[in-house]
């Protein structure tokens, strides 16, 4: 189970990183979201992978660690705020520069190097 979980996180990181290195804004945003999932899963897993152990007093006999969950909960919401901001920044950048390249130029200077 642990190995499979780590594999999933690793694949998310790899896909996210690959997209992050693209030259257009949209894949970069998708990459950021994927990285966000990976990081959230990673953080969440620091509390351990427990089954039937929700951190609600009285519901489960051995509740899992609630602290990573609290962190990840806010991380998800903040992640959304950041995604939204980046999305709108990308739209604005395209409207200002006329290109959706991350370096803001139509010429593929960044791609060529």
């Amino acid at each position: 189970m642990e190995a499979l979980f780590s594999l999933v996180v690793g694949v998310l990181i790899a896909s996210g990183t690959y997209l992050l290195l693209r030259g257009r804004t949209f894949p970069v945003i998708i990459g950021l979201v994927l990285l966000g999932y990976a990081v959230n899963l990673f953080l969440f897993s620091t509390g351990g992978l427990n089954t039937h152990a929700a951190a609600v007093i009285g519901e489960s006999t051995v509740p899992t660690d609630p602290l990573p969950q609290a962190f990840v909960l806010t991380a998800i919401v903040i992640g959304f705020a950041m995604t939204a901001f980046v999305v709108i920044l990308a739209i604005r950048a395209r409207s200002e520069m006329g290109s959706d390249h991350v370096d803001g130029q139509q010429g593929e200077a960044g791609d060529a190097k």
Binding site: E2, S6, V9, G10, V11, L12, T17, Y18, F42, L49
Partner: peptide
């Protein structure tokens, strides 16, 4: 190059996560 970077980072993070989980 990007694939290489991405796959290595994925591997390292996966190993890190596995090491942590166990």
């Amino acid at each position: 190059r990007d694939l290489l970077l991405a796959v290595s980072l994925g591997l390292v993070v996966a190993m890190l996560n596995y090491a942590l989980l166990t």
